[in-house]
Every structure is written in structure tokens, then in C-alpha cells.
Write a protein that binds this DNA or RNA. Sequence first.
DNA 1: TGTTATGTTCCATAAAATGAAATATGTGTA
DNA 2: TACACATATTTCATTTTATGGAACATAACA
Lengths: 283, 283
Amino acid sequence: MADPTPHLTADSKDTEDSTPGLRLFALLELIGSKDHFVSLQSLAEETGIPKPTVFRMLQTLENGGLIIRQSDKRQYGTGTRLRRFAETLLLNATQVGSRHAVLQALVEDLGETCNITALSGNEILYLDRVETQEPLRFNLQSGSRVPIHCSASGKVLLANMSRAQRHKLLRYVPLKQLTANTITTLEELDEELKVVQSNGFAIDNEEFMSGLVCMAIAVPTAHGRSNQCVAVQAPALRMTVEDAVALLPKLRDAAHALFEIETEGSAFAPRTTPTPDSPQIRI
Amino acid sequence: MADPTPHLTADSKDTEDSTPGLRLFALLELIGSKDHFVSLQSLAEETGIPKPTVFRMLQTLENGGLIIRQSDKRQYGTGTRLRRFAETLLLNATQVGSRHAVLQALVEDLGETCNITALSGNEILYLDRVETQEPLRFNLQSGSRVPIHCSASGKVLLANMSRAQRHKLLRYVPLKQLTANTITTLEELDEELKVVQSNGFAIDNEEFMSGLVCMAIAVPTAHGRSNQCVAVQAPALRMTVEDAVALLPKLRDAAHALFEIETEGSAFAPRTTPTPDSPQIRI
DNA sequence: TGTTATGTTCCATAAAATGAAATATGTGTA
DNA sequence: TACACATATTTCATTTTATGGAACATAACA
């Protein structure tokens, strides 16, 4: 049975253990999150997975050298291979590091919270996020997801797609009304996206959450369509739509920096953004 | 269609893939071992696994939030969940017990606060920390982070990188001036790193915080570059740079002990540090 | 010694992984 | 525009693996 209804996991941090491989990894995460050795029994209890199954999973992990058993054979802990993996991973996360640095600099410059987002499935995924120092701010974790039709990032990425592609994607996405401003029909959305496309940026004018204004532009790519955005957001009290538009040049600079990070190797990064100097902006 | 490439993976990366779960993890390792995004094709080639299979595996990993696809959907990289896992793992690994013990012994020996640190993204992460008994001391929690360019650990790890990798990482890291001594230009930093590399240790001479002196050396690894440091720190009033250098041998012993803990299994631990007996030290 | 908590094996069944081949999608070129 | 080529995705019959209830084994404890 193909599953026509995509799961909107929203912000639930439940690990979707849809397949044995991911279950195995989840078990690994559980073991790795302890600072002490753990018994089969406790793992079975904590995960709710039957003991024989956990037993076999642990056996598999041990064969792989990912976990080890203490001398008495009854307690499990993380293995060398796993720790080496973790170290290598962090060591090579230089892209993430640079990305984060760009975001941080942008936030310090603008004084408002900024995000790097990506399209994942039919939702917008927060890749990274740096918060403003202002006491009044909205709280969204890096790694969480928001709907595509009522977020600035979502609209930018949709506007970058072909009409066919977009409609295919939106087919199973309910255009849920989250605030009074949320766009809830395909026709209206198509209209809005035309504006977005011609402007080169998208505004979320309290369409996702009342009182929250957001602006996003696409991070250019060397080839193909963009799948990432950089966005700024703030309470409507502090940032009007006009204020947001005024930040555009700085966002563009950041987007370009992100582009250069993505295309790291290429010594010379041709500016692929059309970037007309002064596009006529319609709001 | 002549197939010039024999199916044996050239890379010797062959881990006993006795089961799908481990194969999945091996794929994850391969992706995590790159400092750039990779295509399905290249993964299929490198692993020798047929494309449709790799495709499904990647799909699984993406569903689990372990990897993400960038821009044009054709390149894969490590996801948020995976990096969080790596950090948690290093912070909580089951050998923290022994690790902590080594640190504790070192602190008792030296009489000053010592840390174990790791690189995560573009920051230095405090993995563990034991405080001196002295009443005058600086307060930094285990789990907190400091900038890479003005910490002894950061400089050691940067010195261990290739020039290209380092510059990629530093390109977007603002070299913020935190004290009068902070190095704030790439040129000066490059110079300093040469010294660090030749010395085999790094000094933070009140570059991060006024009045705080710190020295760090890398914890050796069996394979690849080091991602961890052991460091000692103290108020400048109590420890001059010369004092710090005098502690070098004891730090080296501790680093070696940590190395042995990390590689617990391997009966014989070859000393991978060059460790020339008396390197000419430039300060 | 008996009792309990925990670890391990068995096995019929359900679920998942597999990869060759076909199809689709994009990318570069005439 | 069309065409060739590379890469990505879907399909599907088949093999392989995972699953968990129940039985069995072993260590821990009183």
C-alpha cells in the first residue's frame, strides 16, 4: 500500500522508527546518550521493544564494533568505531561551521533572529538558526519543521519551481489556515508566488503565526533550482514588512556567502544569481 | 557495457556488512567522513552497492533525519540529528569514567584546572573539565563552547588541519577581538599556527579572557586527524607562559593515557605522535 | 536451596531488503 | 529544438532478515 498521506511529523521529536535500520540507530542513540553502561533489560524497558529483539539488535551492533560489552557480558556501552565516527563527523562538519558563522554574523548585523532553511519532503526544515538578543522573540528549534504554504521560505522555494512540480508537491499538502492571513487556496497561492518570483524574495506577513513577520530569499546554486533559503524573522511589533524589505541587501550578501560555502571547491564562484540591481518590488 | 571497475571496493572500507542495519550505518559513516556533500552515484561507486539499493538506503536515512539533501536534491550530507548524536556521544561516552579519572589525576598533579575539548563545527566544545582547588579560578561549564581562534585547543586543532580545510573553516568565522591579545587577522593566525605546529602545543596567552592563560595539546588518534585536546588553564597571576610550557611532559602523558582509553580494544597502541624529545620551542 | 531477575535460544510468520531491468529526469551538446 | 548521455527513481519477483511469543538458561540473591 503506497502511503498517499505524508506524515506531518510537525515538531514531535519522536524518532520515526519506520524501518529496522532506523530502529537500530535509535537504539544506538539511546546507548550513546548514557554516561554509563546499560543492561539489555533496561534498554528493552526504555524502548518498549521486546527483549529477544533488543538482544539481536545488540548482537548486531556488537558484531559491527559499534558497541562493546563489559567484562561480565551483561552491560553495553559505546565502542571505538562509534566514537571515531562521532569525532570524524564533527571534524568534517566544517560546512556547518561556516554556515553557522555566516548566520551569526548576519544576526549580529541585523539584530533579529535569522534562519537557514531547506525543503524536506513537503515541509520546510530549519537547518540552522541563530536567535536575536532581544528579550521578545519566538522560539523555534533548529531541526524543527513548518508548513510550506505559510512560511516565507516555503513560498520562495515554491516560486522557484515549475508550475507542474509545484502542483505535484502541493497536491497532498493541506493549505491549513493557521492565522487570519494564511493563504488557503491554490489560486491565491499561485498569484502570490508570481509576486514572489518577480521580487526575488518572499514575505510571511503573520501567515504562520500571529505577530510574526518573516522574509526569505533563496540561496543561489551553481546548477539547478535552489533548495535552501536564508530568512530573517521578528515580531511584527519590531519589524514591519517595509522594515524587512529594507534588510534585503544584507540578506543577499549572506545568501551569496552561503552559496560560496556550498560550492566550496570551485576556486572561482561565478555569481549565478541574476540579481538585477534594482528589481521593482511589489508588496 | 564493459565494466572496467571490479566490484571490490578500492577503499578497503569494507566493514563486515553482515546485515542491512550495519550496511546502513557504514553508508552513514561514509557520508560523515566527507567534508562535502556527495551524490548517490559516487556513493554507489564507492561502496559497490547497486544504485537502487543505495537510493533506498539514503531515503531511509533522510526519513530518519540523519542526512539531508542539499540544493538540487542531488547531493547528500549529514543532518542535524546526526550531529547532535555525535556531540552527545562524545559528551557522554561510557569511557567518561576513565577519561574523567585521567583528567582528575592530571589536575591533582598540576594543581590547576584542566579540560578535554573537541572541535564541533567552528567552535571548541568542552567535553570534560576538572577544577583546581585554588579559590581563584575561571568558571566554564562542561558542555559550553568557546571560539576557535582565541583558544589554545582551537589553535592546536587548526594547526592539525590542512591549510585548505582550515581556511575554508575560518573564511566565515569572524576573528572577534575579545582581549588586547586576541589574534584578529588570518595572516597573524597563520603565522601563529606554524609555530603551534612546530611546537606541538598551543598557548592562549590571555587571548580569550584577560588574565587567563591556557595551554593545549592534541590527543593522538590511531587514524586520521585528531579532534580532541587536553588543556590546562590558570590565572596569569599563578601561571606564566613559561610555567605552562614546563607542564608539557605531564600533559603529554595524560594525552597518551586518553589515547589509550579511546582505543581501548587494541592491545598494542603505537605512539602516533611524532613526539620529538626536545622540540625547539618558540614562544 | 528456592526464588527472582535477567539473558538467550527456538521457530513459524511477517516484514524488509535486494538488484536487474525499465522508466524518468535532468544536463550538456549539436 | 532535438538528441545523446548521465544520473536518479520506480517496479517487481525473489531472497533475506527481522520479529516476538514462548520456552529455556543462567546469574543474583535470600
